[in-house]
Simulated assay, not measured.
Amino acid sequence: MSSRPGGGLPGVDATETVVMRISGSPGPDDVPRLCAELSALLGGAAGAGEAVCDVGDMIAADLTAVDAIARLRLTAQRLGCGFRLRGAGPELRALLHLVGLSGLAGPG
Rank of each mutant, 00 (worst) to 15 (best):
residue 50 E to T: 11
residue 54 D to L: 12
residue 24 G to K: 11
residue 76 A to L: 04
residue 58 M to E: 03
residue 99 V to Y: 10
residue 107 P to Y: 09
residue 105 A to H: 00
residue 22 I to T: 09
residue 54 D to N: 13
residue 94 A to M: 14
residue 88 A to V: 02
residue 7 G to F: 06
residue 71 R to K: 12
residue 108 G to M: 05
residue 16 E to L: 12
residue 30 D to L: 06
residue 73 R to N: 06
residue 108 G to T: 09
residue 15 T to S: 15
residue 1 M to A: 15
residue 53 C to T: 11
residue 18 V to H: 02
residue 68 A to H: 01
residue 54 D to K: 12
residue 52 V to M: 05
residue 35 C to N: 00
residue 69 I to Q: 03
residue 47 G to K: 05
residue 30 D to R: 09
residue 99 V to H: 08
residue 54 D to A: 13
residue 39 S to K: 08
residue 87 G to K: 03
residue 60 A to V: 11
residue 14 A to P: 04
residue 85 L to Q: 01
residue 29 D to R: 15
residue 41 L to E: 03
residue 19 V to A: 06
residue 87 G to S: 10
residue 74 L to M: 07
residue 34 L to H: 10
residue 64 T to V: 15
residue 35 C to W: 00
residue 43 G to V: 07
residue 103 G to N: 14
residue 24 G to D: 12
residue 27 G to R: 13
residue 43 G to C: 08
residue 86 R to G: 08
residue 87 G to V: 06
residue 103 G to L: 15
residue 42 L to G: 01
residue 26 P to W: 03
residue 20 M to W: 02
residue 76 A to M: 04
residue 59 I to D: 13
residue 53 C to L: 14
residue 49 G to R: 00
residue 79 L to Y: 02
residue 104 L to P: 02
residue 14 A to V: 14
residue 103 G to R: 15
residue 10 P to G: 14
residue 54 D to H: 12
residue 75 T to C: 05
residue 25 S to V: 12
residue 92 L to Y: 03
residue 67 D to K: 11
residue 57 D to T: 06
residue 16 E to N: 11
residue 22 I to L: 15
residue 47 G to Q: 07
residue 19 V to H: 05
residue 30 D to Y: 06
residue 78 R to C: 10
residue 51 A to L: 04
residue 59 I to Y: 13
residue 29 D to L: 14
residue 77 Q to D: 13
residue 48 A to K: 00
residue 80 G to T: 04
residue 107 P to I: 10
residue 42 L to T: 02
residue 58 M to F: 07
